[in-house]
Computed example of a mutant assay.
Amino acid sequence: MTDIVVVVLNYKTPDLAVLAAQSAAAAMADCGGAIVLVDNDSPDSSFQRMIDATRSVEWPAHLDVQVLQSGRNAGFGAGNNFGIHAGLEICPTAEFIYILNPDAQVEPNAISALVDYMNDHPKVAIVGSWVYGEDGADHCSAFRFPGLASEFESSVRLGPVTRLLKKHVLPLHIPETSGPVGWILGASMLVRRSALNEIGLFDETFFLYFEETDLCLRAHRAGHEVHFVRESRVCHIGSVSTGMGTWQRTPSYWYQSRWYYFSKNHSRAYAISATALMVLGTVLWRLRRTIEGKPKPGAKHFLRDMVVHDLRALLRPTPDASIRAIGLPSETSLQTSVD
């Protein structure tokens, strides 16, 4: 039996997080290991509600289910790193780590399909699922890596440009077959433990967004592969914790993550070039919308906020890219165990 550590990171969505854990448990009939629900220091009663809810659920006897409090909200990467470390203490024999969003529900064969795929493809370090919404509509689940061309193409939003730069279009949507991609959504991500031992965990400099992109890029650069698996399907409500779909104004952490991703993985000159191309593309798109008499949707002051942020970031040193929680934390507080 393959052992897996499942990490469900919660921030103010405790009921959904427990349901996500239950769906994972139901999909692990042929897998052992641990399910770790981590509360990322939610400013509400999330932690106690998850404890109470897990105690009322009858969990499979072969799984160890734990509810933990991270004690700080340092972001998606840091919270999942905490859960990974704790999960490996609970189940030191785990071969894989499975990251599952709290607002996601896995289908009965979703986890086994990822594990089987990994076993059949030893060069693959990270795999992701086919993600769809509550309405059955597909969510973009696989992507190319962002770059200069993709920043311009995504912002100018013009058919001829998209056709010209088709090999640089960021979203791959739902690939027709399972196979290699650039990066996959962190909403349903299975990672080989041996690969994490080599490349490290999530870079905790990212608070939110771009951290799974960065992890997949590091895997590629270390000689591993990242694949999308059509046979694994997961329902994702999407952006419940972050509210991304309803942003009136883009939060500063998105700009910080974007800048850090480009400057860390390429260069500061590359990062400022990416911003310049996004500004150019957005200005051209807005001009076209004005000529056509159409509204310009999107977050308020997006360009201004991005330019101001990046100019300020240009004057500051790039954070040390080695800042990752690689070692085990000094204290792991296993608050409750549900057998």
Rank of each mutant, 00 (worst) to 15 (best):
I35M: 09
I35F: 07
V36W: 09
V36A: 11
V36H: 08
V38I: 10
V38C: 10
D39Y: 05
D41N: 15
S42G: 07
P43A: 05
P43E: 05
D44K: 04
S45W: 08
F47K: 04
F47I: 03
Q48T: 06
R49S: 02
R49D: 03
R49Y: 01
R49L: 03
M50Y: 00
M50P: 00
M50K: 01
I51K: 05
T54I: 03
R55H: 03
V57I: 00
V57H: 01
V57Y: 01
E58F: 02
E58A: 06
W59R: 01
W59N: 00
P60E: 00
A61C: 00
L63T: 00
L63F: 02
D64E: 15
D64H: 13
D64R: 15
Q66H: 14
V67Y: 01
V67K: 00
V67W: 01
L68R: 01
L68I: 01
Q69F: 09
Q69D: 13
S70H: 01
S70W: 02
S70M: 01
R72T: 05
N73Q: 00
N73H: 01
A74P: 03
G75M: 02
G77W: 03
G79L: 00
G79K: 02
N81K: 04
N81S: 07
G83I: 06
I84M: 15
H85P: 03
G87A: 13
G87H: 12
E89G: 11
E89Q: 15
E89T: 14
C91K: 13
C91R: 14
T93W: 10
T93G: 13
A94L: 14
A94K: 13
E95Y: 10
E95Q: 15
E95R: 15
E95C: 11
F96V: 13
F96K: 11
F96C: 12
I97H: 11
I97E: 14
Y98L: 15
Y98V: 09
I99P: 09
L100M: 14
P102Y: 09
A104Y: 10
A104R: 11
A104K: 13
Q105I: 14
Q105H: 15
E107W: 10
E107P: 08
N109W: 08
A110C: 11
I111G: 03
I111S: 02
A113G: 03
A113T: 05
V115F: 08
V115E: 07
D116L: 10
D116P: 06
Y117T: 11
M118S: 09
M118K: 07
D120W: 05
D120C: 09
K123L: 13
K123S: 15
V124Q: 06
V124K: 05
I126S: 06
I126C: 06
V127G: 03
S129Q: 08
S129F: 06
W130A: 11
W130I: 07
V131A: 14
V131Q: 13
V131M: 14
Y132H: 12
E134G: 15
G136N: 07
G136I: 07
G136H: 06
G136P: 06
A137G: 12
A137F: 12
D138Y: 09
A142V: 04
A142I: 04
A142K: 03
A142G: 05
F143N: 07
F145Q: 04
F145P: 04
P146D: 10
G147M: 07
L148F: 04
L148K: 07
S150D: 06
E151D: 12
E153C: 13
E153L: 13
S154K: 11
S154W: 09
S155Q: 06
